[in-house]
């Protein structure tokens, strides 16, 4: 049984013919993180469904992806085989780090996956609904400590937007930054803070186990199978999605862009990609073409405004 499986895998790996374009995907993050996993999942899906025979992944970590982005723009201009993975975090990082290179300079291809930000409280908390949390926030903004990821990231931006939407000065929020969602989760579980704010998947298993109470999610629509309102339904008129995307090099021709877009669309529809999303618990939010460009512009504008409001960007 084992041997059969092994033999099948090896022959499968060797039988991949040299199809069409070879791609080099840059993950502007260290091995193991979300962007790296996205890049490697793309590599796997592109190769196993025969869209590309040879896909390489390179890691260029640092400064919220802006180091990788700068290197990508400098070295890959006009190269139709070069791709870069990025995400919403990059939008904020470009602004807070005053990055010399922006997303304007690459050729965005498609949004691939997305995740709602979840607002949770410890199971023994007095706050039963989002309205309770908002009331406490309005009464004394400093008394609500929010645990989330790094300052200026999607979690911090969501907390700032909630405050702004309900009419609380965003600079007064008491946001405690942790490295990654994991440590923030521990702080909420240990009831060290009032609320936790991070990607839904970070909290999912604890919510299921009843250790955390989910007050709301930041997506436009409810997450299927999850019993929690969206922020809008709970009376806070805003929505935010923490997405990941793929972009191509600057200076490629329209035909080259069309060819890459076609390959990515094929990949998104492949079984390998769908299976991978399922095992990793990622939500498919594929959006391409003009619709994605419009969405990207809107996100950049909104992010810049709130970062100024919070005081992280001047």
């Amino acid at each position: 049984m084992n041997k059969l499986l092994l033999a099948a895998l090896i022959s499968g790996a060797m039988a991949v013919p040299a199809f069409a374009a070879d791609y080099t995907i840059m993950a502007p993050a260290a091995p193991g993180g979300g962007w790296d996993q996205t890049a490697r999942t793309m590599q796997e899906a592109l190769q196993s469904s025969g869209i590309s025979g040879n896909v390489q992944v390179t890691n260029v970590p640092g400064a919220g992806g802006t180091i990788g982005l700068a290197q990508f723009v400098n070295q890959s201009a006009g190269n139709p085989n070069a791709l870069i993975v990025g995400g919403y975090v990059m939008v904020g990082a470009i602004l807070t780090n005053a990055s010399p290179v922006t997303l304007e300079e690459v050729t965005p291809i498609a949004r691939l996956t997305g995740e709602a930000v979840a607002i949770v409280v410890p199971k023994n908390s007095d706050l039963k609904t989002l309205a309770d949390l908002v009331a406490k926030l309005k009464a004394d903004a400093g008394s609500v400590s929010w645990a989330g990821g790094s300052a200026g990231g999607a979690d911090h931006i969501t907390a700032g937007l909630i405050a702004k939407t309900v009419g609380v000065d965003p600079t007064t929020i008491n946001y405690i930054a942790y490295s990654g969602g994991g440590e923030a989760l521990a702080a909420v579980l240990g009831a060290q803070v009032t609320a936790g704010i991070s990607g839904y998947s970070e909290f999912a298993s604890q919510i299921e186990a009843g250790e955390l109470r989910l007050l709301a999610v930041s997506s436009d629509e409810r997450i299927p199978g999850v019993d929690a309102p969206t922020l809008r339904e709970a009376g806070v008129d805003m929505a935010l999605q923490n997405w990941r995307m793929v972009a191509a090099a600057p200076g490629i021709t329209a035909e080259q862009k069309a060819a890459i877009s076609a390959d990515i669309e094929k990949m998104v529809n492949s079984d390998a990609w769908k299976t991978a999303l399922e095992t990793k618990g990622w939500v498919n939010t594929y959006l391409a073409g003009d619709a994605f460009d419009v969405q990207l512009d809107a996100d950049i504008g909104a992010t810049e405004a709130i970062l100024k409001d919070i005081g992280l960007v001047q």
């Binding site: 970590p61 640092g62 400064a63 919220g64 802006t66 180091i67 700068a70 807070t96 780090n97 990055s99 010399p100 790094s150 300052a151 200026g152 911090h156 405690i176 930054a177 942790y178 490295s179 992280l312």
Partner: peptide, 20 residues
């Protein structure tokens, strides 16, 4: 590098590679 709590860079002298 970047101060985690405020997102401000410290002693990075404008070098992107030092931000982390």
């Amino acid at each position: 590098g970047i101060d985690q709590q405020t997102g401000q860079s410290r002693l990075a002298f404008g070098v992107l590679d030092l931000l982390d």
